[in-house]
Simulated scan of single mutants.
Amino acid sequence: MCLQKKFIDRHPRRRCTHCNGEVDQITRFETVPKVLAFAVDDASVIVSKKISIYDGETRLVFKLKGVVYAGDFHYISRVCVDGVVWLHDGMVTGKNCKYEGKLSAFNDSDLSTCNGKVLSLVIYSQK
């Protein structure tokens, strides 16, 4: 829902100079990218394990690949590979990642926060 609002951004106070109608800013892709990354600054946003975009002919599915969280002047991340979730916190695990479990075991709310930190960036890629 958050993405739908972002791709069709309503500007009711702006008016068309030709017809005086409301102006909408619609984001379109000439070529749909293979990777989508979204910076998040709204604590109410919930991470989805997959998103889809209809390109006019087919429905393109993007799967969750990573999430970055911020808090207390520190960033941590979850990396999703082949249905498995790995946690990276350089201050705790150094250059290693810690196994957290299968992605199917997480619900969308579980993915929106991590160790007291809040969602900052989410990354998806096409199948």
Rank of each mutant, 00 (worst) to 15 (best):
R13N: 13
T93R: 10
V68C: 10
M1F: 00
V67N: 01
D110P: 04
H18S: 13
F62Q: 02
M91A: 15
T58R: 15
P12T: 03
T113Y: 04
L111Q: 02
S77H: 05
T27N: 09
H88L: 10
K95H: 13
V68L: 08
Q25L: 14
A70K: 10
H74Y: 03
E30M: 11
V32N: 09
G66S: 11
V84Y: 10
V67A: 04
I46T: 15
T17N: 07
G56R: 12
K5H: 05
I46M: 06
D82R: 15
T58V: 13
T58H: 15
V118I: 05
L60H: 08
L121F: 06
V67R: 01
Y75P: 00
V81H: 11
N107T: 07
F73R: 13
S52N: 15
K127G: 07
G56M: 08
Y124A: 03
G101I: 05
H88A: 08
I8K: 11
E22V: 11
V67W: 02
D108I: 00
M91I: 12
S112V: 01
F73W: 12
C19A: 03
L103T: 04
K63P: 00
V68R: 11
V23L: 15
F38E: 06
A105W: 09
K63F: 13
L3K: 03
D110I: 01
A43Q: 12
